[in-house]
Write a protein that binds this DNA or RNA. Structure first.
Length: 423
RNA sequence: GUGGGUGUAGCUCAGUUGGCUAGAGCGCCAGAUUGUGGUUCUGGAUGUCGCGGGUUCAACUCCCGUCACUCACCCCA
């Protein structure tokens, strides 16, 4: 058997890579406009980093992490998410001494050993951002804004923004007690998973999809109406700000987050065309994490968006650039003058295709048309003698004969600024 | 980790109750006279029928196993 990609991984082929590049470009431009700087951390870290930050109790750490030992016996893990590494880096490089907030973003691959499904693979990519060091709800609003803007700028519509707060160190434990009290007599009505959650992660019972659980949770207390005054005020302020930004959202009292480090305002952005894994982006505040990881007490807020999931929503769109020309030559094998002309075009940034094969002109034009070239350059013995070349517009099927020496400037004028179609 | 569906040419699929050299469309390649593409016409190439085993005179078709894909649960971006 020939070797294939590992389960849950896939090649991003040239035919799809334009969409990826467009998405990355849009993300970078946007994040940098919001004053975030890119950070690139290693794809593997000490396994303990994730155990401490993401939480031993989560499935991500307990079951889904790619853990391995290196030759010195160090326990390492492929990163299952982005925030932990950034927090590690923030502490390691004493970033608290910089002007706060420190605003960072990342784009890259992550790894979780899960059963593949629509919108879920073992290697997947996220774009995310973190604003660290200032506790201000405007940063929460800004993070939500960016998380909405990235897919929106790509032309993804009908995003659903859901907002909630899971409280702070003070009010969350109180609420959990209340919730457990409410469910105490109803445990036997809950599904098997929620019976387990009752002891491991009670908040998760809130977002169970099973009708019997929804039924029992419905008449119980919600975290949203049991927040302390401070948390309630923060949630309301975030609402006010994103309203000003015209972000259409709704409060979802049963929205909770899976990772242990979240505190306060959290959010999820979903899309109905994605299937069961419908979260495009999600995030929230994690004010205790940095202290918990050995730094000084530092508030922070961030989000991550699933790139594959956005790509799925863009599948019908074409981001292919057609800013290329095709050099067709004939009557002779590609001699030095043609080869030099080709190099000259390319050295001047003109995306130039050619066949490298002695094919008929017909054939070469066919190639040019197939690969979506805007112009063909036709260079035969006649032209070469005169020092000219034929510039053929593939769309209008009109052509003109120009001097080879002027070709670069003339072609460059024909192209507006390079970029992606449909943006 | 659990459950359902699927696995036949590069792609999308057909293949009758097991029976001759396994098919279609699209794509690909080549031609329709001399240096001009996307239409049309003609011709052509391509398959260990996912892999391994079993039943049978005979298996793409039945049975078992396995791997992969896919969808859902779990979990999460």
């Amino acid at each position: 058997m020939v070797v294939k990609t590992v389960r849950g991984t896939s090649d991003i082929l040239p035919c799809n890579v334009d969409t990826w590049q467009a998405l990355e470009l849009v993300s970078r431009n946007l994040l940098e406009a919001y004053d975030y700087k890119e950070i690139r951390t290693p794809v593997f870290e000490q396994a303990g980093l994730f155990q401490k930050s993401v939480g031993e109790s989560t499935d991500i750490v307990s079951k889904e992490m790619y853990v391995f030992s290196d030759k010195k016996g160090r326990e390492l893990a492929l990163r299952p998410e982005g925030t932990a590494s950034i927090v590690r880096s923030f502490i390691e490089h004493n970033m608290h001494t910089q002007t706060l907030p420190v605003k960072l973003y990342y784009i890259g691959p992550f790894f979780r050993y899960e059963r593949p499904q629509a919108g879920r693979t073992r290697q997947f990519h996220q774009v995310g951002a973190e604003a660290i060091g200032v506790e201000d709800v405007r940063l929460d609003a800004e993070i939500i804004d960016i998380a909405v803007q990235i897919p929106s700028k790509m032309g993804i519509k009908n995003l659903k923004v859901m907002l909630n707060s899971i409280g702070c160190k003070e009010c969350r434990p109180k609420y959990i007690k209340q919730l457990l009290g409410h469910l105490k007599n109803k445990i036997k009505n809950l599904c098997a998973d929620c019976n387990r959650r009752y002891s491991t992660n009670p908040l998760r019972i809130l977002d169970c999809k099973k009708p019997e659980c929804i039924q029992n949770v419905k008449d119980g207390p919600t975290i949203t109406e049991n927040l302390c005054a401070k948390c309630r005020n923060k949630l309301e302020t975030v609402e006010r700000y994103i309203k000003y930004l015209d972000i259409d959202y709704q409060i979802q009292p049963y929205l909770v987050r899976g990772l242990d480090y979240y505190t306060g305002v959290i959010f999820e952005i979903t899309h109905s065309q994605l299937g069961a894994q419908n979260v495009v982006a999600a995030g929230g505040r994690y004010d205790n994490l940095i202290e918990q990881m050995g730094g000084r007490p530092t508030p922070a807020v961030g989000f991550a968006a699933g790139i594959e999931r956005m790509i799925m929503l863009l599948a019908h769109r074409n981001f292919q650039s057609n800013n290329s020309v095709c050099l067709a030559y004939l009557d002779f094998s590609m001699d030095e003058r043609v080869f030099k002309f080709l190099a000259e075009l390319r050295q001047n940034g003109i995306h130039t295709k050619t066949t490298y094969q002695e094919k008929t002109l017909k054939n070469q034009l066919k190639t040019a048309a197939k690969s979506n070239c805007k112009f063909s350059l036709i260079l035969g013995a006649n032209e070469l003698l005169k020092g000219t070349v034929i510039l053929r517009n593939m769309k209008t099927s009109t052509q003109e004969e120009i001097m080879m020496d002027n070709a670069v400037t003339i072609i460059k004028k024909k192209f507006p600024l390079g970029g992606f179609r449909g943006m």
